Structure formats: structure tokens, C-alpha cells
Amino acid sequence: MKGKVVSYLAAKKYGFIQGDDGESYFLHFSELLDKKDEGKLVKGSMVHFDPTPTPKGLAAKAISLPLE
């Protein structure tokens, strides 16, 4: 699924993505496929991810940034 980063707290390594389906997904650095892309996780960045339901809500897994 595609989505847009709505927040990312680099110090805490987490944030949120708004998916194309309108839902909010929890984003964690550990799910970023290329850790070098962390600096690109800023508000408004477009990402691809696997939407995954968890006991705490919806989460983004296997997060990647589109090729530039």
C-alpha cells in the first residue's frame, strides 16, 4: 500500500503514516527495509508498506521509500 508520513519522531524511532485507504498506521524504524532511508522519513514523504493489524491497532510493516 502507498501512504504519506504524517509524523516521525527520530529520537524515539516511531511515527505515523496515513494510508491511501485513509487509515492511520504506526510506523517504527525497525520496519524500514533500508535503514539509510531514515533521514527521508519526514512529514509528507511518500512510502510503500504492508498494512498489518496488531493487537494495538494498525501497523506499517516492510516500509520502503519510492525510487527517486
Rank of each mutant, 00 (worst) to 15 (best):
E68I: 12
G15C: 03
K40C: 08
D21G: 04
Y14M: 07
S64L: 09
K43P: 14
K56F: 13
K61E: 04
M1H: 06
F29A: 11
G22A: 04
A62M: 10
V5T: 03
D20F: 10
A59F: 10
S64V: 11
K2S: 13
G39D: 11
H28Q: 07
G57F: 04
A62P: 02
T54E: 05
V5Y: 02
I17F: 02
P55N: 10
Y14T: 05
L32S: 02
V42Q: 11
K12N: 09
S7C: 13
P66D: 15
A10C: 10
S30Y: 09
D37C: 10
D20I: 10
E23M: 14
L27I: 06
T54D: 06
G15D: 00
E38N: 04
P51N: 04
D20V: 10
A60M: 00
L58M: 11
G3Y: 01
K12P: 03
G19L: 02
K40P: 02
L67E: 13
L9N: 15
G57Y: 04
G44K: 03
Q18F: 11
G22V: 02
V5K: 02
P51G: 09
T52Y: 15
Q18P: 01
K35I: 08
L27T: 03
E31P: 01
T54V: 06
H28N: 06
M46H: 11
G44I: 02
P51E: 02
L27Y: 09
Y14N: 03
F16H: 05
S30F: 09
H28F: 06
A11E: 12
T52G: 08
F49L: 01
K40D: 04
A59P: 02
L9D: 15
A60D: 02
K36L: 09
E68G: 13
K35Q: 09
H28P: 05
I17E: 00
L32M: 05
A62K: 15
D50T: 15
A10P: 14
F29S: 07
P55D: 10
Y14P: 01
E38A: 10
L58K: 09
K61C: 11
I63R: 00
T54R: 06
E23F: 14
I63M: 03
G57I: 03
G3W: 01
D34Q: 08
K13T: 03
S24H: 11
E23S: 10
M46R: 15
G15I: 02
A60Y: 01
A10N: 08
V42S: 08
K36C: 11
A62R: 15
H48Q: 13
G39L: 13
E31D: 10
V47T: 04
P53L: 15
K61R: 11
G3T: 00
F16G: 02
E31M: 07
A60R: 00
L67T: 13
G22L: 05
F49C: 02
D34S: 08
S45N: 10
G22D: 06
K36W: 08
L67M: 12
K35T: 08
Q18R: 14
L27W: 04
E23D: 06
I17P: 01
V42A: 09
L41M: 05
F26Y: 09
P66V: 15
K56L: 10
L67Q: 13
A11Y: 11
K36A: 13
I17V: 07
L58W: 13
S64E: 06
D37T: 07
L58R: 09
E68R: 06
P55S: 12
D21V: 02
H48S: 12
I17S: 00
G15F: 02
L58I: 05
M1C: 08
F49M: 01
D37Q: 11
G57N: 03
G3F: 02
E23Y: 14
A62Q: 11
F49K: 01
D50P: 00
S7Q: 11
A62L: 09
G39R: 14
Y8D: 02
I63A: 04
L67G: 13
V6E: 07
S45V: 15
P53V: 14
G22N: 07
P66K: 13
G57L: 03
A62F: 10
T54A: 07
K35P: 15
K4D: 03
G44L: 03
K35D: 06
K36H: 12
F16Q: 04
T52Q: 14
